[in-house]
Write a protein that binds this DNA or RNA. Structure first.
Lengths: 191, 191
DNA sequence: TGTACATCAGTGAACGCGCGTTCACTGATGTAC
DNA sequence: TGTACATCAGTGAACGCGCGTTCACTGATGTAC
């Protein structure tokens, strides 16, 4: 069967979206090409009509994941006065909702140790994504000068990433909520 | 060749130690039975004379990793006055030394997303390790009542775990030091 | 004390399995005449 | 307008590989007589 170029792009986008969710839910090594293609309603053989390699897909999935969380956080911040935006980011990022749905959450929370271990081949592009993430969040961070905002970014996101991860290890919702609420309070009091 | 029972225990300990380092350096899925046995100077076939399964080894390796970091932190705290102990823990945990040697560091910093995704079969024992870790660190945490100390544990360790992970993704030492120092300052000012 | 036997940690070939990747093939649709 | 051909996304068998696990075997040492 032959399809239009728009159709091909659409399929490609669907594969990337599915893979992005799977990667965040199951880890960098947890995504099989066959499984992703099945998600998209195709068979594994067609994969290489869309991607050069699995690494290629992984990088695109990461990009998609970062874009998604950036959009989610940017959207949450839309109506807050400047200087208060970071509070909205903390509340959204540390919501039970995002904690219990890693597949819709931040790739750093879902994958940072995997990213630190990534092969040299793809590491630079991962670092670029992190830098880009930082750039996108910087305007919302507390602090006067850029250097202050940058420090705030690293501290706030470190804290949020760690809290989400610990909460995700905990087996029951009440404990998760305790960790998330405690961290939220702490951060909101801290700047 | 036949060996004494002490020798067998010694070998077993060596396998666990090697595996514990490998797991923290390369992730839960990054450790092959063959590689660990080679580290210990043996061949893969003998593995099942020491362990029931790979899961068995993984759990023991995690236990070993938690014990190691607990000992490291407890040792760092030995000479500090009570009430100041947590500061020493923050300084040690966020040292460049531990950041650049995941294989000697905290299993949570190295593996928490993997632990969150662990199969139901081993999850309860992982949670037990986390609870034990918390119990071991609680006496050193700031706060008057146990509830305060517990809140402090989750906040402080969340922040440290996230900071170490972000630092480990960053490609050059200067940036890593900036993140670690910034987080250290932040935490030391916060309690 | 010396000898025959039992034990069992360790070896390495073999297994079944899932994976990433390749490839000859299909067949619906676009294009050339 | 109708027909022959080219295109190329998608299929599914096949590949080589690494993995966890099994198993018949080895041979140094402990034990029984």
């Amino acid at each position: 069967m032959r399809y239009s170029p728009e159709h091909k792009l659409e399929i490609r986008r669907k594969i990337v979206k599915d893979a992005s969710r799977r990667v965040r839910a199951e880890g960098l090594t947890g995504v099989a090409v066959g499984a992703v293609m099945k998600d998209a309603g195709l068979t594994h053989g067609g994969f290489y009509k869309h991607f050069e390699s699995k690494d290629d897909l992984l990088l695109e999935s990461l990009r998609e994941g970062f874009r998604e969380i950036e959009d989610t956080l940017a959207h949450a911040v839309e109506k807050s006065p400047p200087g208060e935006a970071w509070k909205e980011i903390v509340k959204t990022y540390l919501s039970l909702e995002l904690c219990e749905h890693p597949e819709r959450g931040c790739p750093l929370a879902a994958l940072s140790p995997d990213l630190a271990r990534a092969e040299t081949r793809i590491k630079p592009q991962i670092v670029a994504e992190l830098v880009n993430y930082k750039g996108r969040m910087l305007p919302f961070m507390p602090g006067r000068r850029t250097a202050d905002k940058e420090r705030a970014f690293f501290v706030i996101f470190s804290t949020m990433i760690g809290a989400i991860q610990i909460a995700r290890v905990l087996p029951d919702r009440a404990m998760r909520e305790k960790v998330l609420a405690g961290t939220k309070d702490f951060l909101l009091r801290s700047f």
